[in-house]
Structures are given as structure tokens and as C-alpha cells.
Design a protein around this nucleic acid. Structure first.
Length: 417
DNA sequence: TCTGGGGTCCTAGGACCC
DNA sequence: TCTGGGGTCCTAGGACCC
């Protein structure tokens, strides 16, 4: 089968976080809603009405506070437990329509159709309707011969929801040219603010302009990714389709503090917490890491940082906690005010097949880690934990309006009276 | 006063080696 | 005093994505 038979579909939930918040709150169906980032810092998702007021993604909460009140807009702290669970259900529905589903982010997935006989547009209309019926999520679908063109199609489906009924097909050359001619270069997937500025200096203003460029020249001027984007705009697939999540090459956990911190003991607890979460993610993907980086952020936007290597790769939380303590001693300054802390694991490799160094005296306790994970999976996060995590979480972030974890915590299940 | 978090990939430049 | 060239590996920083 030639690659000409391959079509990609990008399915994306409209205002996903807002849609999730509305799921269990039918009273919010026609009411404006926005969702704030972690720590209730800024707006990260909103309904069309809020957009029409000029609120942009990333606007700080304090700047829109009065606007929200004036227009009676309901706002929520983000609830990633809920969004993650709904996302899984979304992908499950997509799998009823093709066995080739590649989740791309929490709210969008690529599908691949190969040698599909029948009307693909109709199939996707059907898919869209099913997602809406089963999960009550509004989605848009873009079809194209490459992922980049499917993204372009999705852009138009979202922009013209009414006239397209939420599905746009850019497989034909004629539709494609029109779509690219009317698409500003900054709206192409992979072309951000900086690159579009530079492209415009070269008089490359639209996706069609970029499509017609000499890709070798632009590869030299920019990078291989620019070359790939151009080829994808011409219908030649360059970006891979990963059906299964790839093992992460770095694992990061970080949070801003609810209130600024100066105390070393509090910082240590926060870092221990982040290291614990990182190690859980590491074990979940069956990997080992050989180094850990901890970083702090002060009021003055500088970020002291320390990277420590283990004597051999490990997934044992306690080894990383020891490293944290050493690292913090190196970078902590009592006269500083800290806003944020984080931990990153690096040098990641699969644990399967790892040849342990027989001369290494470091304790590795896979059974202990496994028991820890099993207990916490059953009884909830940190049901059992290392003492260095502490108990009072004085550093915890703000989340003043978080909705219940309707689908993932027994205590949060809706009760009917 | 208050501005998120978690990733990927690419490139440039320095260290080091032969 | 003169002091090459090519390769690899690592890291930091930048750009992008959602």
C-alpha cells in the first residue's frame, strides 16, 4: 500500500478543561467559565464568551479578577486528576473508530487511516457525534495527508465550527492551496513567535509562501525541523506517528509555592516531594536515572541549580532524597526569598536489561519500591511515604476553587439525594 | 502584591582525545 | 618560538508545543 493511502486526523476537544468542568455541572452549560493554571496564577482555558471579552491565555488572574466578577464568569483552579481521567475516556472512544490512535496531548489525538474505503469525512462526523453523545465533549476534526496538514485542517474546523460542522478535509490539492494561502505563518504547527518574525523578514507571510520555499535553503537558515514542516505542508509525511507513549528522556516535577519561602526545612520538604513524584513516574515507565537536578527560583527570577550524579542508575527514591539534601546544602542561601522549587531526573535508561555493577555498594531495593507503589496505588498518594516529605506542606500551592475529582476519588463521587 | 507546568528537539560551544 | 584537524561527548540555552 502506498503512503498516498494514509490520512491523518487530528481530533481536538474544544476548550477541554472548560468542557471537563461543565460535565458534572450542567448548570454551567450556558454560563461563561474559565480555568486557571496551577497556583491560580493565570488563565489557561476559557469558553468563547470569555475569549470575546479579550481575555488571553496566560493573562494573570489579578488582572481579570474584576472582569470575571462583572460578567459573572465562573472560574476554577485546575484539576488535572479529572482532566487526565476524561482524556483517557476520550481516547477510548476514538479507538472505536480506528485502531491507530496516537494521543498527542491531554486534549488532542492523531488518528491514522490507511486504505480506508468509504467516506472518511462522514466517518469523522460520526466520530464527532459519538464523542459528544457518550462523553458530552465538543470536538473538531481536521483531515490531511500529513500531521501538519491535519493540524491546519483542524484550525479551520475550529474557526468555522458552524459552516463546517466541525470537520475539515484538506486531502484535495485545491482545498489545500486555499487553506494555506489564507493561513498566517505563525499559525503553522511548529512555527512560533520567534520563527514567524524571522520568516516575515524574508517576506514569508503565509503558509502558502512557506510551502513554496526552497526547503534546503530554509533548512540551512533555520533547522531541519523547518525543512520537515515545509515538506509536510506539501503532503510528504516527516513526523512520526507514535501509537504508544515513548519513554521520557527527562522527568520533571515542580511547583510554585502558595506563599514565598525562606526556610531551608520547607524547601527540603518541597524538593523531597518533587523527587518522590519524579521517581514514581520513573518506575512507572520502567526506567532508571543516573542523575538528579534540583532548582529553586527566587523573587529575582534567577534560578540556583545543582546537578548530582548517582554512582549507578537507580529508581530508588531514597537515593535521590539523599542527593537532594546534598544539593540543597550547596545552593541554599538564607537571605533569599524563594518562589518555586523543582526536581528533574536525567540520564534515563530502561531498567530492563540493566547490568548492575557488582562492585557497587549502594543499596538498591526494588522490592521496597514496588511495595511502596502498590500500597499508594491502593490507598492513595503518599498513604505511605518517606519522613523527609514532612506533614504540613507549608509550601503548598493555591487552589482556591478546585472542583471535586468526580471520576477518580470515592469521596468525590456525586451523591443523589 | 498577585504571571503554570511538563515536555521535546536542535544548535553552538567547550572540553577532550588522537 | 613555532602549534593542525577532525571527531566525540556533554551542557546550556533557545525555540517550540499543549
Amino acid at each position: 500500500m502506498s503512503s498516498n493511502d494514509v490520512t491523518y486526523a487530528l481530533c481536538d476537544v474544544n476548550s477541554f478543561y472548560v468542557a471537563c468542568e461543565r460535565l458534572f455541572r450542567p448548570d454551567l452549560k450556558d454560563k461563561p467559565v474559565i480555568v486557571l493554571s496551577n497556583n491560580d496564577g493565570c488563565a489557561i482555558a476559557m469558553c468563547d464568551f470569555s475569549k470575546s471579552l479579550g481575555i488571553k491565555i496566560g493573562t494573570p488572574y489579578f488582572q481579570i479578577k474584576s472582569l470575571l466578577k462583572r460578567h459573572n464568569i465562573e472560574w476554577f483552579s485546575s484539576n488535572y486528576g479529572l482532566y487526565g481521567d476524561i482524556s483517557q475516556r476520550f481516547n477510548w472512544v476514538l479507538q472505536q473508530f480506528t485502531d491507530k490512535v496516537a494521543p498527542y496531548s491531554v486534549d488532542e489525538s492523531f488518528l491514522m487511516f490507511q486504505g480506508f474505503s468509504g467516506d472518511l469525512t462522514e466517518h469523522c462526523q460520526n466520530l464527532k457525534q459519538t464523542v459528544n453523545q457518550w462523553l458530552s465533549l465538543p470536538i473538531c476534526v481536521g483531515l490531511g495527508p500529513t500531521k501538519t496538514l491535519a493540524k491546519v485542517a483542524n484550525y479551520y474546523a475550529k474557526k468555522h465550527k458552524q459552516s463546517t460542522n466541525g470537520v475539515v478535509d484538506l486531502r484535495s490539492q485545491k482545498n489545500r492551496q486555499w487553506a494555506l494561502e489564507h493561513l498566517a505563518v505563525e499559525n503553522i504547527w511548529g512555527v512560533g513567535r520567534r520563527l514567524s518574525q524571522k520568516l516575515k523578514l524574508q517576506r514569508i507571510d503565509t503558509a502558502w509562501d512557506l510551502h513554496n520555499c526552497d526547503y534546503k535553503t530554509l533548512q540551512r537558515m533555520f533547522s531541519v525541523n523547518m525543512e520537515r514542516t515545509i515538506l509536510e505542508l506539501r503532503g510528504q509525511p516527516c513526523f512520526e506517528f507514535h501509537q504508544h507513549p515513548q519513554a521520557k528522556q527527562s522527568i520533571l516535577n515542580s511547583r510554585s509555592f502558595g506563599n514565598p519561602i525562606t526556610n531551608k526545612a520547607d524547601l527540603k520538604e518541597a524538593l523531597a516531594y518533587h523527587a518522590t513524584r519524579c521517581c514514581e513516574k520513573l518506575r512507572k515507565q520502567s526506567s532508571l536515572a543516573n542523575s538528579i537536578q534540583l532548582f529553586l527560583r527566587t523573587r529575582h527570577s534567577d534560578h540556583p541549580q545543582a546537578t548530582l550524579s548517582l554512582t549507578e542508575p537507580s529508581d530508588d527514591t531514597s537515593l535521590f532524597l539523599q542527593a537532594i539534601e546534598q544539593g540543597l546544602n550547596r545552593i541554599y542561601r538564607p537571605d533569599q526569598v524563594y518562589k518555586k522549587a523543582g526536581v528533574m531526573l536525567l540520564g534515563i535508561e530502561p531498567s530492563k536489561g540493566y547490568q548492575a555493577d557488582i562492585f557497587n555498594q549502594t543499596r538498591q531495593r526494588p522490592e521496597l519500591m514496588e511495595s511502596l507503589d502498590t500500597i499508594n496505588a491502593k490507598f492513595g498518594k503518599d498513604a505511605i511515604k518517606f519522613g523527609s516529605l514532612g506533614f504540613d506542606k507549608r509550601w503548598a500551592m493555591r487552589a482556591n476553587a478546585r472542583s471535586p475529582h468526580y471520576t477518580s476519588r470515592w469521596n468525590d463521587i456525586i451523591r443523589l439525594k
